[in-house]
Design a protein around this nucleic acid. Structure first.
Lengths: 350, 350
DNA sequence: CAGTAGCCTGTGACCGGTTACAGGAATGCC
DNA sequence: GGCATTCCTGTAACCGGTCACAGGCTACTG
């Protein structure tokens, strides 16, 4: 398929842009007819269509988006809202990938992506005002924490929302798309168990996020299913960042120097954990096997490359956008789960 | 400064949003007066101001952005346009940092950031149509290549633009903000020279970008200033990506196995180069010193940590936004350079 | 006291689309 | 031929703001 790039007949500079009435005059029809041709949902005679089409290309007309938004009440744009504290935002390639995929999915539907970052208090209040002010048709919410007051304010303002990840406590009001965190976690730990490891630790994410809770639950599931006991001392918490992963790993090693595997709930934290293990003289995967979560860009380039659970963010973004258009159209809240798969690399080979 | 988060009195759900006329009725004034209070650039009596203020908070009024845009001809939004091929976009934390900083700078000026990614041909044509359609007030252009047809189309459409990095061939028509690439490159290479290295190679960026050309020029400057000869075999080209850096390093080693230093024009490429050097059994910095460019998030975590030229992207983003508002206001094209500094780490210590 | 300058306010036109409504022309059917 | 139906089109109202203009009121000046 050769992509024809239409050479837009730039409206002669200086003069102001042609309006629908200019086109109408040029085509010898009324402006309502032009509008009808543009939207194509009402009956228009073939000749009129042709005349309008020609007039449009002759004048280089493009619709004024603001006028259209005013008349229809839709803006054609969607906010991509990040609420994580600043330093986490871009350390992990995850956000970037999700952003890129969302941009693509929206663009395919002729929607535009407005990026909003609400880390600081002023940013947050500006964000609320903006979003409830009707600037956007809907919101894509990234990794929200359940206690965040932003959530209830958005819900109150009745802005259509789809979140990435389950929003604890808001399952009935906020639609979401999540990876199958629980089964992903379970399969990661089962992989470690089937390699014969028995003193398996985990570094989890924040317990006020769906991913944090569910991945830990998967860890429990696997241990219990295989008759292993759960040692609270082998469970450490992080905030998804590298540094928190490193710190958690230090804690775990202090508690049990003989642990022989770790399931880490994000690749960024796993990267920190690997660093600490290396510094502590442990061989990975010989002494300690490590499995991460996300299969982000990092995973292939850590030392050693990381076995991890693939979190299909492109799929997630796609489903989020699809779901959001449904929610905008009036659908009741819904949660969608997309499957995960284990990607085996050197940090825990087959 | 305590950040007061105003509790927006959400307009009672169900009923539709109050308009300026509702507020006017409530306050007992005409709607024009309300508009005046809102914009605050005309004389209004103190009592009227108070009455309107109260009516606004009582009704929970917020202005309809589309109506305002239609009337004023300004949208209040800026496009952040990425034109790099997809795989490069998010591998390098640079883009993310620039994006984050730009979002911040725009938000401070009550402008919103619309993210546009134009990698594929359809995306490009959609982008052109969108941008020349008057949806946005201006465009922030990231690392454009000089041959890109998008450039001339945007210029033709008279969209206000500020680019990140010099746009070769468009210096007179497109404003830009660039790091001091040439002096940055020069200082990097002088650092290597002062460490006594003499067979200094370089891996440059694309030669149709300002950064690519200028950083290479800095390399030339330093060698010439210190009486060293320029060996074309010690100059290799990359596309900013890790892989291209690795490939270029292999080429260089093949040409001159005895080279004792490399200046790499981006950290991502430097990361690839370090990997190849390690595989080739070279000690860094013992056998080969390496200096990168950008001081991106990668630099501190490479093995060994990378000495690099700091590219102050937060400053750059800030200047871009400031300049763009000027350009929108009618300023003639202008180029701004922000200084760089050398950050010394283990890959080429003092 | 007339004239004028400075405040303040309301009316109405306008931005550029969408869409309800009414009506004209052509066709089909009795 | 009369009438309903279907197709097509134009007029006008509307979306919710901004802003030019005209005009009223007060206060100051000569």
């Amino acid at each position: 398929m050769t992509a024809m790039i239409p050479t837009v007949p730039t409206p002669s500079p200086g003069r102001k842009r042609p309006t629908i009435r200019d086109v109408a005059r040029e085509a010898g029809v009324s402006y309502a007819t032009v509008s009808r041709v543009l939207n194509g949902r009402e009956w228009v005679s073939p000749e009129a269509v042709r005349a309008v089409r020609e007039a449009i290309s002759r004048t280089g007309y493009t619709a004024n988006p603001h006028a259209r938004s005013l008349a229809t009440g839709r803006s054609g744009s969607i906010a991509f809202l990040l609420t994580e504290p600043q330093h986490l935002l871009f350390e992990d390639p995850n956000f970037s990938v999700l952003l890129r995929s969302a941009a693509q999915a929206l663009s395919d539907r002729e929607l535009t992506l407005i990026l909003m970052i609400a880390s600081t208090p002023e940013e947050r209040s500006r964000t609320i005002a903006y979003l409830s002010g009707g600037h956007v048709d809907g919101v894509l919410l990234v990794s929200p924490h359940s206690g965040d007051p932003l959530l209830s304010q958005l819900v109150r303002a009745e802005v259509p929302i789809v979140a990435c990840g389950r929003v604890l406590g808001f399952e009935q009001v906020i639609s979401s798309v999540m990876a199958d965190d629980r089964n992903g976690g379970r399969s990661a730990v089962e992989h470690l168990i089937s390699a014969g490891r028995t003193r398996i630790a985990t570094i989890t994410g924040p317990q006020d996020t769906g991913g944090g809770v569910d991945r830990l639950q998967g860890y429990h599931d696997a241990l219990i299913a295989h008759g292993l006991t759960i040692d609270p001392g082998l469970i450490a918490h992080g905030d998804w960042s590298r540094e928190s992963g490193a710190a958690a790993m230090r804690t775990l090693l202090a508690h049990d120097p003989g642990l022989d595997a770790v399931f880490v709930a994000s690749d960024a934290m796993a990267e920190g954990a690997l660093r600490v293990l290396r510094e502590a003289g442990r061989d990975v995967p010989g002494d300690v096997r490590v499995v991460g979560f996300d299969d982000s860009g990092l995973a292939a380039t850590t030392e050693p490359p990381l076995t991890t659970v693939r979190h299909p963010l492109d799929r997630v973004a796609d489903e989020m956008v699809r779901l959001l258009t449904d929610v905008i159209a009036g659908r009741t809240p819904l949660s969608i789960t997309v499957p995960t798969t284990l990607v085996v690399r050197a940090s825990s080979p087959l």
